[in-house]
Design a protein around this nucleic acid. Structure first.
Length: 378
DNA sequence: CGCCCGCGCGCG
DNA sequence: AAAGCGCGCGCGGGCG
């Protein structure tokens, strides 16, 4: 970690020097205020978005857009940000969290924080360890199994979409999961009207954004932004989607109506999330509550299911014949430390219990990996 | 100096 | 006017 911190620092210095060249002056790249002055006052770039408090935003999507318009500095700032995020949040901080007695990092899981029923992890948060970039994965590689043991990571595949299929009963979605299809590819084939084999990478990417967007209650505007297409085109995607999966459309309408009538929504197991602002006079608050109403049954049911799985897996690990321990939970993933040689048996035991944690009208599928470190186990 | 807020961004 | 759900944390900046 120390070596990585130094590498990140070197990268940040080089980017600061580049910023100096472009801007004609040195400034603190981490200071939004100074960055605003350089970008919008000194270099005269258009302020594309304001923050909640009326400041000219320097958030990632804004800088992305400026970079795509040919400005150099935003790209440098974005690179600097990602390095600085990794350094301050992870490589500088995590070593200080090592417990002197155990030689390990121990997190705390909060059971009564997240409104949807998820666990949250704090002091330190081990549910946001990087994975999406190569640089970030190097941090994940620092989470290692002790000698003679392996890490096993088991995660639910597309659990929220499967719950949507279950809750909506939509024929098309159910049969896509039954057939074991790549769900984003299947969605792309439906929305773009082609065969599964004819789906392009770009179409699959769009379909993935549509699938996630639906879970979050996203609008055509938001989808368009994300995909870099017009609102009109995004609208057509959504229309096609609901045309192909009418059960999903009906479910969205039903859950909205229920939320307005009852003031709460429920998970598959009947756990409630109350929505006090669902009938608010303020439209923005009302719409935010509607998005929560759409998302909460899926996110919340997934949380219920993995908690049930954790009880079963914990009981399994308590068996004296099983040399394994459940050490982390990351929303749809369980991480175990397992004795070398016992991997195959434990993987069977754990994935079986995760699969059986709930009986939905679609199968629950669990992907699993083994390795000497957390990155390898994926 | 400690505390709090807004912003920005890491993860699912 | 706003426009995607749920978290936790580091930083800059302002305050008492």
């Amino acid at each position: 970690m120390a070596e990585q911190s130094r590498e990140l620092a070197t990268g940040m210095e080089s980017l600061a020097a580049q910023a100096f060249e472009v801007a004609g002056e040195a400034f603190n790249l981490g200071s939004p205020k100074q960055l605003q002055e350089v970008l919008y006052d000194k270099l005269g770039m258009p302020a594309l978005r304001k923050t909640q408090k009326g400041q000219r935003s320097t958030a990632e999507p804004v800088l992305q857009e400026l970079a795509s318009r040919g400005f150099d500095l935003p790209r440098i700032i974005l690179e600097h940000r990602s390095l600085s995020k990794l350094k301050s949040t992870y490589t500088d901080s995590l070593p200080a969290e090592i417990n002197q007695r155990t030689g390990r990092i121990h997190t705390s899981y909060n059971q009564a924080v997240a409104a949807t029923g998820r666990l949250s992890s704090a002091d330190p948060n081990l549910q946001n360890i990087p994975i999406r970039t190569a640089e970030g994965r190097r941090i994940r590689q620092a989470f290692v199994a002790p000698p003679g043991r392996k890490l096993v990571a088991a995660d639910y595949s597309q659990i929220e979409l499967r719950i949507m299929a279950h809750l909506s009963g939509d024929e098309g979605l159910l049969s896509a999961f039954d057939g074991g299809d790549d769900i984003h590819r299947a969605t792309a084939a439906e929305v773009f009207g082609c065969g599964l084999d004819a789906v392009s990478d770009d179409q699959r990417r769009s379909a993935k954004a549509i699938n996630f967007g639906l879970i979050y209650g996203m609008s055509a505007f938001g989808l368009g932004q994300q995909l870099g297409v017009s609102r009109h085109v995004a609208d057509e995607y959504i229309e096609r989607y609901f045309d192909r999966y009418p059960g999903v459309h009906a479910y969205m309408e039903t859950i909205r109506a229920q939320a307005h009538d009852d003031g709460f929504v429920e998970t598959v197991f009947g756990r409630r999330l109350y929505l006090p602002e669902i009938n608010d006079r303020n439209r923005m608050r009302r719409q935010a509550a509607e998005r929560t109403a759409i998302n909460a049954p899926m996110q919340g049911s997934a949380a219920d299911i993995i908690k049930r799985a954790m009880l079963a897996v914990d009981a399994y690990c308590a068996d004296p014949g099983v040399d394994a321990a459940m050490i982390m939970q990351v929303h749809d993933e369980l991480v175990l430390e397992v004795a070398e040689g016992a991997e195959d048996t434990v993987i069977d035991g754990v994935t079986g219990r995760m699969r059986d944690a709930a009986r939905l009208s679609v199968e629950l599928v669990v992907d699993v990996g083994v390795g000497d470190n957390w990155d390898e186990a994926h």
